[in-house]
Amino acid sequence: MPGGGPEMDDYMETLKDEEDALWENVECNRHMLSRYINPAKLTPYLRQCKVIDEQDEDEVLNAPMLPSKINRAGRLLDILHTKGQRGYVVFLESLEFYYPELYKLVTGKEPTRRFSTIVVEEGHEGLTHFLMNEVIKLQQQMKAKDLQRCELLARLRQLEDEKKQMTLTRVELLTFQERYYKMKEERDSYNDELVKVKDDNYNLAMRYAQLSEEKNMAVMRSRDLQLEIDQLKHRLNKMEEECKLERNQSLKLKNDIENRPKKEQVLELERENEMLKTKNQELQSIIQAGKRSLPDSDKAILDILEHDRKEALEDRQELVNRIYNLQEEARQAEELRDKYLEEKEDLELKCSTLGKDCEMYKHRMNTVMLQLEEVERERDQAFHSRDEAQTQYSQCLIEKDKYRKQIRELEEKNDEMRIEMVRREACIVNLESKLRRLSKDSNNLDQSLPRNLPVTIISQDFGDASPRTNGQEADDSSTSEESPEDSKYFLPYHPPQRRMNLKGIQLQRAKS
């Protein structure tokens, strides 16, 4: 015994090295194993092979420090690593049964499904019991997946119906949107047309105001020219009257000059006056001389005659003075006559000038009245044309509004008919989907599995289990394997941990 101590140590070291070499393959693929292994699927088989106990299973599945599946799978690998070579062998058998691809990844061999460990530990009855539990578990999982698949199909059909409904609603909204954009385009076109009409109206108003201003300026210029013409006519008439007055005065002077006595007659009258003065002096001298030589009687007679002569001279002087006064009065009367005649001529000139001015103003008033009548006639014609244009424009607008209203009513009726057609199509689609759903539900009910399987069917299934373990590994792997896509769409199922009653199965096998 003492001599065998070193050999035992060498043997233990060799086993430990082999164990480390075995687990080295697992550690190399630890990331892939932790990512894809579900500990809840492996722990029943590991407990059946007595590699882990209930406490280890509870620690792996329910520990609060292991929230994710990767953490739980890593903890399970750590626990199996502590179990040595047996933990490695049982772990590979569980991978061979549940995850053939991972088994091939770790060992590089094809899975054979021999279950040597569980046969050694529990015997064939334990293997049968384990396989029966796994089959029931798989059936329950398949039923749950079928239910989930039916629910998802129903949800899918519902979503398809909602999608069709949303599509129809979208078509309806597109119809309304198209109608909205069309009405918006019509409104924009009408606004552009309105702005264009306003611009045209403004341009016409500006043109009309400009023409009116030009016409008023032309009328004012015409009036100024007419006033200048009238003033020139007035000056012409005044000059004609002055010329006529000057002509009359010149004719009067000419007549006075023609009626003036001649120079010879004046000289002859002056000679006669001198001769008479000479004779008068001679007679006076004779009379003076006679007075001195005459007697007293003759002197008395001469005195009487002288007195008579003096009286006659006085009378004559009075007559001469009277004649002079009369001549002066006649001259003054002639001057007054000439003055009055001049005033008369001036008044006649003024009267004729005023008459011509009156005629001029009368003509001017007639011209202004004619212009006013023409302006009123043009204004009435413009008003009439404007009223006709406004009436025609309003009539066109009324007809346009009428046609637009008819078009809008027809478009609304068309839209309502399209919407009604879309709604009826939606109703038809809904009815078809309901009919299809009812038909599929009836087919699913016919094809669904019963909840409680008979014992004979279970025994028959387990009677055929042994050949399947040898020759149909691919079928078992397809039913027991969970793909990543299934984990996305289906909830994980945790079967209840219970042991099955095998009395009925044993009785059935005894009868057979």
Rank of each mutant, 00 (worst) to 15 (best):
4 G>Q: 10
4 G>V: 13
4 G>A: 12
4 G>P: 12
5 G>F: 10
5 G>H: 15
6 P>N: 13
6 P>D: 13
6 P>Q: 13
6 P>F: 12
7 E>F: 11
7 E>G: 12
8 M>G: 13
8 M>P: 11
8 M>D: 10
9 D>T: 15
9 D>N: 11
9 D>M: 13
9 D>Q: 13
10 D>S: 11
10 D>W: 10
11 Y>N: 11
11 Y>R: 14
11 Y>L: 12
11 Y>E: 12
11 Y>T: 13
11 Y>M: 11
11 Y>P: 12
12 M>H: 09
12 M>C: 08
12 M>Q: 11
13 E>H: 12
13 E>P: 12
14 T>E: 12
14 T>Y: 11
14 T>L: 09
14 T>G: 13
14 T>A: 13
15 L>A: 12
15 L>Q: 12
15 L>R: 11
16 K>Q: 11
16 K>N: 11
16 K>C: 09
17 D>W: 11
17 D>R: 11
17 D>C: 12
18 E>A: 12
19 E>Y: 13
19 E>K: 11
19 E>A: 12
19 E>F: 13
20 D>I: 11
20 D>K: 09
20 D>R: 08
20 D>F: 09
20 D>E: 13
21 A>S: 12
21 A>M: 09
23 W>F: 08
24 E>W: 08
24 E>A: 13
25 N>G: 09
25 N>P: 15
25 N>K: 14
26 V>T: 07
26 V>R: 05
26 V>F: 04
26 V>S: 07
26 V>M: 09
26 V>P: 08
27 E>D: 06
27 E>G: 06
27 E>N: 13
28 C>R: 14
29 N>T: 03
29 N>R: 07
29 N>L: 01
29 N>I: 01
30 R>L: 03
30 R>W: 05
30 R>M: 01
31 H>T: 09
33 L>P: 01
33 L>E: 00
34 S>T: 14
34 S>N: 02
34 S>A: 10
35 R>C: 04
35 R>D: 00
36 Y>P: 01
36 Y>Q: 10
36 Y>H: 12
37 I>C: 04
37 I>T: 01
37 I>R: 00
37 I>M: 06
37 I>G: 01
38 N>L: 04
38 N>C: 04
39 P>K: 01
40 A>Y: 12
40 A>K: 03
40 A>E: 03
41 K>F: 06
42 L>I: 09
42 L>R: 00
43 T>N: 00
43 T>L: 02
44 P>A: 05
44 P>M: 01
44 P>W: 00
44 P>G: 05
44 P>R: 01
45 Y>E: 01
45 Y>K: 02
46 L>G: 01
46 L>F: 13
47 R>C: 04
48 Q>H: 03
48 Q>S: 14
49 C>V: 07
49 C>M: 14
50 K>V: 06
50 K>P: 03
50 K>N: 08
50 K>I: 05
51 V>H: 01
51 V>R: 02
51 V>W: 01
51 V>M: 06
51 V>D: 04
52 I>P: 01
53 D>M: 03
53 D>S: 04
53 D>G: 03
53 D>T: 03
53 D>K: 04
54 E>P: 05
55 Q>I: 08
55 Q>G: 07
55 Q>P: 07
55 Q>A: 06
55 Q>S: 05
56 D>G: 03
56 D>E: 03
56 D>K: 01
56 D>Y: 04
56 D>H: 02
57 E>Y: 02
57 E>N: 00
57 E>Q: 01
57 E>P: 00
58 D>T: 00
60 V>A: 00
60 V>T: 07
60 V>S: 04
60 V>K: 00
60 V>N: 00
61 L>P: 00
61 L>F: 06
62 N>S: 07
63 A>K: 01
63 A>L: 01
63 A>Y: 10
63 A>V: 00
64 P>S: 13
64 P>Q: 06
64 P>T: 08
64 P>R: 03
64 P>G: 03
64 P>F: 06
65 M>F: 07
65 M>E: 00
65 M>G: 01
65 M>D: 00
66 L>E: 00
67 P>T: 11
67 P>I: 10
67 P>A: 09
68 S>R: 01
68 S>F: 05
70 I>E: 02
70 I>H: 04
71 N>S: 13
73 A>H: 00
75 R>T: 02
75 R>Y: 02
75 R>D: 02
75 R>E: 02
76 L>E: 03
76 L>R: 01
77 L>H: 01
77 L>Y: 02
77 L>G: 04
78 D>I: 06
78 D>W: 03
79 I>G: 02
79 I>T: 04
79 I>C: 03
79 I>E: 01
79 I>F: 02
80 L>P: 03
80 L>S: 02
80 L>Y: 04
80 L>F: 01
80 L>M: 13
80 L>W: 03
81 H>T: 05
81 H>P: 04
81 H>E: 07
81 H>M: 06
82 T>P: 05
84 G>M: 03
84 G>S: 08
85 Q>N: 14
85 Q>T: 13
86 R>S: 10
86 R>A: 14
86 R>T: 07
86 R>V: 12
87 G>N: 03
87 G>D: 03
87 G>F: 01
88 Y>L: 07
88 Y>D: 03
88 Y>S: 06
89 V>T: 15
89 V>D: 15
89 V>I: 10
90 V>G: 15
90 V>L: 14
90 V>T: 09
92 L>D: 15
93 E>M: 09
94 S>L: 08
94 S>G: 13
94 S>A: 05
94 S>I: 00
95 L>P: 06
96 E>Y: 06
96 E>Q: 03
97 F>L: 06
97 F>H: 15
97 F>P: 06
98 Y>Q: 09
98 Y>I: 07
98 Y>C: 15
99 Y>D: 00
101 E>S: 15
102 L>E: 09
104 K>A: 08
104 K>L: 02
105 L>A: 11
108 G>D: 11
108 G>S: 02
108 G>P: 00
108 G>E: 07
110 E>H: 06
110 E>Q: 14
110 E>G: 06
110 E>R: 10
111 P>E: 08
111 P>N: 03
111 P>V: 10
111 P>C: 06
112 T>W: 02
112 T>S: 14
113 R>L: 06
113 R>W: 05
113 R>G: 08
114 R>K: 08
115 F>W: 15
115 F>I: 15
116 S>Q: 13
116 S>H: 07
118 I>C: 15
118 I>M: 05
119 V>E: 15
119 V>S: 15
121 E>V: 06
121 E>W: 07
121 E>D: 15
122 E>W: 07
122 E>T: 05
123 G>F: 15
124 H>T: 14
124 H>R: 14
125 E>H: 12
125 E>M: 13
126 G>S: 15
126 G>E: 15
126 G>A: 09
127 L>I: 15
127 L>H: 05
127 L>S: 12
127 L>T: 14
127 L>K: 07
127 L>Y: 13
128 T>Q: 08
128 T>P: 12
128 T>A: 05
128 T>H: 13
128 T>D: 13
130 F>Q: 06
131 L>D: 04
131 L>Y: 01
132 M>D: 04
132 M>A: 06
132 M>W: 08
133 N>T: 07
134 E>P: 15
134 E>W: 15
136 I>R: 12
136 I>K: 08
136 I>D: 07
137 K>S: 08
138 L>G: 15
139 Q>L: 14
139 Q>T: 11
139 Q>H: 13
139 Q>E: 09
139 Q>W: 10
140 Q>S: 14
141 Q>L: 14
141 Q>F: 09
141 Q>P: 06
141 Q>S: 09
142 M>Q: 11
142 M>R: 09
142 M>D: 07
142 M>W: 12
143 K>E: 07
143 K>F: 08
143 K>Q: 08
144 A>S: 12
144 A>Q: 13
144 A>D: 10
145 K>I: 10
146 D>R: 09
146 D>C: 11
146 D>S: 11
146 D>V: 13
